[in-house]
Write a protein that binds this DNA or RNA. Structure first.
Length: 83
DNA sequence: GTTGAGCGTT
């Protein structure tokens, strides 16, 4: 399972994500997509923890939490199919 | 500032 993190500050880095989610489990992957044309961050991210329990815990705890000045959205990610 | 890519037409 992958976690979707939306409404992020554009100052957030992969290191920041990893640091925060590491409090709830082992971060296997932290990905910050950038706009394909402008190269700028898109304001959301994807994080993979090692177990679903950890991810569920991270979602429950971090969803709606104020981080870097923004109330981030955290929930289970959708498959990467849309465009 | 809200769901990742690139290739290239299921």
């Amino acid at each position: 399972m992958t976690i979707y993190v939306g409404n992020l500050s554009y100052d957030v880095t992969q290191e920041d994500l990893t640091a925060v989610f590491s409090e709830y489990g082992t971060v296997k992957k932290a990905y910050l997509p950038t706009d394909r044309e402008t190269g700028k961050l898109r304001g959301f991210a994807f994080v993979d923890l090692s177990t679903e329990e950890e991810e569920q815990q991270a979602i429950e705890t971090l969803d709606g939490a104020n981080w870097m000045g923004r109330d981030m959205k955290v929930n289970k990610a959708r498959p990467r199919e849309r465009r």
